[in-house]
Simulated scan of single mutants.
Amino acid sequence: MTISTPHAADFVAKPEALTIRLETPFDDAWIEELHEISFGPGRFARAAFRVRERFAVDPSLCWIAELGGQRAASVRMTPISVGGINGYLLGPLMTDPAFRKQGAGRTLVKHVCDLALERDGVEFVLLVGDLAYYRPLGFAPTIPNAIRFPGPVDPARVLVHSADAEMGAKLSGPVSRFISR
């Protein structure tokens, strides 16, 4: 069964003002500042940060959204495996406070999930986040405590997006390195 998700343009009031592009080294300082604003000093203790500390992000899945030519949001993806099933960890997703509620973040999520799930051997996108925000983008809960992160995580916030509607029940075990095949 395929999960139907909206198109990126559905989230933006003025889609003609939104552009998305790959992240470049020019964006590094802006992303770090936005990360600090969005998550504060406790960001380094988060379980998702611990995963990204162990496994490098995939630069082909690190995107920037611009509204009216200004950087508005950023998203990164990290290749992972859970129980021998390959996927990606989404995050951090960050939107500049001046551009919140304009669809830039949701558009980035939809875009990177589409790209990731089109890849051979990739079966899911996982994240730790708010179900109310991510459910309209195709995310669903996983089995509480079945996926083990390298740090504490609220099991109700571990969400998965996959073409397989049963993926949330299939994922079990520690978050580990993406398995090359």
Score class of each variant (00 low, 15 high):
Pro6Gly: 15
His7Gln: 15
Val12Met: 03
Ala13Gln: 14
Ala13Phe: 01
Lys14Pro: 00
Lys14Ala: 15
Pro15Val: 14
Pro15Cys: 11
Glu16Trp: 09
Ala17Met: 12
Thr19Phe: 00
Glu23Ala: 09
Asp28Pro: 00
Ile31Asp: 01
Ile31Glu: 03
Glu32Ile: 14
Glu32Asn: 14
Leu34His: 12
Glu36Arg: 13
Ile37Thr: 13
Ile37Gln: 06
Ile37Trp: 06
Phe39Arg: 05
Pro41Met: 09
Ala45Cys: 01
Ala47Gly: 04
Ala47Leu: 03
Ala48Asn: 00
Ala48Trp: 01
Phe49Thr: 10
Phe49Ala: 08
Arg50Phe: 00
Arg54Glu: 11
Val57Pro: 03
Val57Leu: 13
Ser60Asp: 14
Ser60Phe: 00
Leu61Val: 03
Trp63Glu: 04
Trp63Asp: 11
Glu66His: 06
Leu67Tyr: 02
Leu67Glu: 04
Leu67Gln: 07
Gly68Glu: 12
Gln70Lys: 14
Gln70Phe: 02
Ala72Thr: 02
Ala73Leu: 04
Ala73Asn: 01
Ser74Val: 00
Ser74Asp: 04
Ser74Pro: 01
Val75Leu: 07
Pro79Trp: 08
Val82Gly: 09
Ile85Thr: 15
Tyr88Asp: 07
Leu93Pro: 02
Thr95Ile: 03
Phe99Gln: 13
Lys101Val: 09
Gly103Tyr: 05
Ala104Trp: 03
Gly105Lys: 01
Gly105Leu: 03
Arg106Gly: 13
Asp114His: 09
Leu117Glu: 06
Arg119Trp: 03
Asp120Val: 09
Glu123Val: 00
Leu127Tyr: 00
Pro136Cys: 05
Leu137Val: 02
Phe139Met: 06
Pro141Leu: 07
Pro144Ile: 09
Ile147His: 06
Arg148His: 13
Asp154Pro: 00
Asp154Tyr: 01
Asp164Tyr: 07
Asp164Ser: 08
Ala169Asp: 10
Ser172Met: 08
Pro174Val: 11
Ser180Lys: 12
